[in-house]
């Protein structure tokens, strides 16, 4: 279970493939963050729609 890299600089450089490796991992992180934000927005909207329904009924 020893680490493969000798330093952090070594790790970030990814043997010269830093751009391709981090563009891949970065995209996954962005995708997950966006999905979690969208999940929160959708929940807020659904709750707001229920609130609207409730108000409509109170008016009638």
């Amino acid at each position: 279970m020893n680490l493969y890299w000798s330093s952090w600089a070594d790790f970030w450089a990814m043997g010269g493939h830093a751009y391709f490796v981090w563009m891949s991992y970065g995209a996954l992180v962005v995708a997950i963050v966006v999905e979690i934000l969208l999940l929160r927005v959708r929940r807020k909207r659904a709750l707001a729609a229920i609130e609207e329904e409730r108000d409509l009924e109170a008016e009638n």
Partner: peptide, 12 residues
């Protein structure tokens, strides 16, 4: 972190 680099492809 732990896995070795691939001999043919390198770190990518």
């Amino acid at each position: 972190g732990v896995a070795p680099t691939d001999a043919q492809q390198g770190a990518v």
